[in-house]
């Protein structure tokens, strides 16, 4: 375990990554690569999978760093950034040395990257607090599909857990094929392949309400102020496909 040029594997969860990083730091190993179990190794790779004790290490990080630092690392973990695991590794390694001060040390590349990436994830999550569109199904379940750049579903679910606390809702991340199911108490993240939603039909009034919203959206715009570039800055086109009010414009674009 002394060699540094190997790829270390963790079990796809944040706590597993934290456990792996703790072991590496304990053994003074500076890794080349940290990957989750989805990683397809090449012929030249040496792969090492260690036994990871998640809970014990989580406690270690809580004591040795802070909630704020772990939270930044978690947001980076949810991102789609290349080499996010290595960024987290160096960010945490330096956190042990500099503690809370680390947050102001943007002259360290790992800090600059970690802060930028976590801000990006947080920003996208904020956008989806607004951009997520539910429809009501026949059995009164609210159902939404999202397609974000980062894996924001775990944090986005917390928002809707508060906001729509007395509703049953389902949010599907169609990019990652993950579903969040809320049962008026807790939400559960499950793999979409374990779950069939094909038979669910819209509730009776769904069409009428959707039409009201689309009409409102068109009406509220002031034609003398038309500024599509400004709209596209705030609401990038990549998000439009799951937004009900944009369906007509997408159709127009495609023609």
């Amino acid at each position: 375990m002394k060699q540094n040029d190997v790829t270390y594997i963790y079990q796809n969860t944040f706590s597993s990554l934290l456990a792996l990083i703790k072991i590496l730091i304990d053994h003074k190993i500076k890794p080349m690569n940290l990957k989750n179990t989805d990683y397809n190794p090449t012929l030249l790779d040496t792969i090492i999978e260690l036994e990871l004790k998640d809970e014990k290490s989580f406690l270690f990080w809580q004591i040795k760093t802070s909630k704020k630092i772990i939270n930044i690392a978690y947001y980076v973990f949810l991102s789609n950034a290349d080499n996010k695991e290595l960024i987290i590794y160096y960010f945490l390694l330096n956190s042990l040395k500099y503690q809370e001060k680390i947050i102001h040390m943007r002259n360290l590349k790992c800090v600059d990257k970690a802060l930028k990436i976590s801000a990006y994830v947080s920003h996208e999550n904020h956008k989806f607090k607004g951009f997520t569109r539910f429809k009501e199904l026949q059995n009164h379940i609210l159902y939404a599909t999202i397609s974000p750049e980062n894996n924001i579903l775990p944090i986005l679910s917390k928002h809707f857990q508060n906001r729509l606390k007395n509703e049953n809702w389902i949010i599907k991340d169609e990019k990652r094929q993950i579903i969040s199911i809320y049962d008026k108490k807790n939400f559960y993240l499950v793999n979409a392949s374990n779950f069939s939603l094909n038979e669910l039909q819209d509730c009776q009034e769904e069409k009428q309400i959707a039409a009201l919203w689309k009409n409102f959206y068109k009406t509220i715009s002031i034609k003398e102020r038309k500024n599509e570039r400004c709209r596209n800055n705030f609401m990038p086109k990549k998000y439009w496909k799951n937004m009900l009010e944009m369906s007509d414009e997408i159709e127009k674009d495609n023609k």
């Binding site: 904020h126 607004g130 951009f131 906001r163 007395n166 002031i222 102020r225 038309k226 400004c230 609401m235």
Partner: peptide, 25 residues
């Protein structure tokens, strides 16, 4: 029974004039 407020405010959409749509105005 339903609903929360967010201190920072949330924009739910943007109309073609680039203005934020947050509330049913």
């Amino acid at each position: 029974k339903i609903g929360t407020t967010a201190f920072s405010g949330i924009c739910h959409s943007f109309s073609s004039d680039g203005r934020c749509i947050s509330l049913l105005k």
